[in-house]
C-alpha cells in the first residue's frame, strides 16, 4: 500500500511542478495556459483517484490515521485553490496551495509510519477533513493578506503610491474571512456529533472565535470611513491572533482543560 502511495504522490507532485512551471511560462506564451491548468488539476485528480482506490482496498473511508487525513488535504487544497483563483482572480494562490499539498505529501513519504499513527475515536469523523481543509486554505489566504499588508506598510513609510497593493490585501482578508467562517461552523457541527455540544468555550474554540472577530472587525472598519492605509497595520498584525490560535493555545494557562490539545506531528 505504501508503495502505491509513493507512486501516486510522486505523480501528483510532478504534475503540480510542471503545471506551475508552464503556468509561469504562460505569462509570455498564452497558448500554454490550458495545458498548465490541465496538468495542475490532474495532480489533484491523481490524489482523488488514489483515495478512491485506497478506500475500496481498505473497505472503510481512509480517515483513521494522520497519514490518511493528509491524503485528503493534498487532494482538496489545490482544488479549493483553483476554485478561489477562478472566482476571485487571485493570481498566485494556486502555487501556494500546490506547494502546501506537496509539503503534506512529502511528510507522508518521509515518515511512512504516519500511516500507523492513529487518530483517537473523536477525530474519526467525516467533518474532520472539511474542517481542516477549510482552515488551512483560510490560513494561507490570511497569511498572504498579512504579508501584502506588511509590504504596503513598508511602501507607505517610503511614501510610495500603492492602491493595488491595498486592494489585494483587502480581498485576501475578505476571502480568508469566508473560509474562517466555514471552518468555525464546520467545527461546531462536528463538535455536536463528537462531544455532544456545538460550542463549549474550549480555549481552542475561544481563540478561533477571537481570530474570527479580528477579521470581522476589519471588514466593518473597512466599510466605514476609516483611512484604508491605517488598516494595513491592522491586517499585518491580525495574523498574530491566528498564530496564537494555531500554535500558542497549548502554552496558555487555560489550555489545561482543553479537548483540543492532543499533540500531533
Amino acid at each position: 500500500m505504501i508503495m502505491n502511495f509513493n507512486t501516486a504522490a510522486e505523480l501528483a507532485i510532478v504534475c503540480w511542478a510542471i503545471g506551475s512551471l508552464l503556468s509561469l511560462l504562460a505569462n509570455r506564451t498564452p497558448a500554454l495556459k490550458l495545458p498548465a491548468f490541465l496538468l495542475s488539476i490532474a495532480g489533484a485528480l491523481v490524489m482523488a483517484g488514489f483515495i478512491a482506490f485506497y478506500w475500496s482496498a481498505l473497505d472503510r473511508p481512509p480517515l483513521r490515521t494522520l497519514g490518511e487525513t493528509r491524503l485528503w488535504y493534498a487532494a482538496l487544497i489545490p482544488l479549493v485553490g483553483f476554485l478561489v483563483e477562478y472566482r476571485w482572480k487571485i493570481g498566485g494562490l494556486k502555487y501556494y496551495c500546490m506547494a502546501l499539498a506537496t509539503f503534506l505529501l512529502s511528510i507522508n513519504m518521509l515518515h511512512p509510519e504516519v500511516f500507523d499513527k492513529t487518530l483517537m475515536p473523536a477525530l474519526q469523523s467525516p467533518w474532520f477533513i472539511p474542517h481542516v481543509v477549510v482552515y488551512l486554505v483560510g490560513y494561507v489566504l490570511l497569511a498572504a493578506s498579512s504579508v501584502t499588508a506588511l509590504h504596503n506598510v513598508y511602501l507607505q513609510l517610503r511614501k510610495q503610491e500603492n492602491s493595488t497593493g491595498e486592494s489585494v490585501s483587502h480581498f485576501l482578508a475578505l476571502l480568508g474571512f469566508v473560509f474562517l467562517s466555514f471552518g468555525l461552523i464546520f467545527g461546531a457541527l462536528w463538535a455536536k456529533e463528537a462531544w455532544g455540544h456545538y460550542w463549549t468555550w474550549d480555549p481552542k474554540e475561544t481563540w478561533a472565535f477571537l481570530s474570527w472577530l479580528a477579521y470581522l472587525g476589519y471588514l466593518h472598519a473597512f466599510r466605514y470611513k476609516i483611512d484604508k492605509s491605517k488598516l494595513q497595520w491592522y491586517l499585518a498584525l491580525a495574523f498574530v491572533v491566528l498564530l496564537v490560535c494555531w500554535f500558542g493555545v497549548n502554552y496558555l494557562p487555560s489550555a489545561q482543560n482543553s479537548v483540543h490539545t492532543y499533540t500531533q506531528s
Binding site: 468555550w201 480555549p203 475561544t206 477571537l210 472577530l213 470581522l216 472587525g217 494557562p253 487555560s254 489545561q256
Partner: peptide, 15 residues
C-alpha cells in the same frame, strides 16, 4: 465587537 473580543480574551487565557 472589541468588547466581546476582550472579554473572550479573558476567557481564552484564564482557565
Amino acid at each position: 465587537i472589541l468588547a466581546i473580543a476582550l472579554l473572550s480574551l479573558i476567557g481564552g487565557i484564564i482557565p
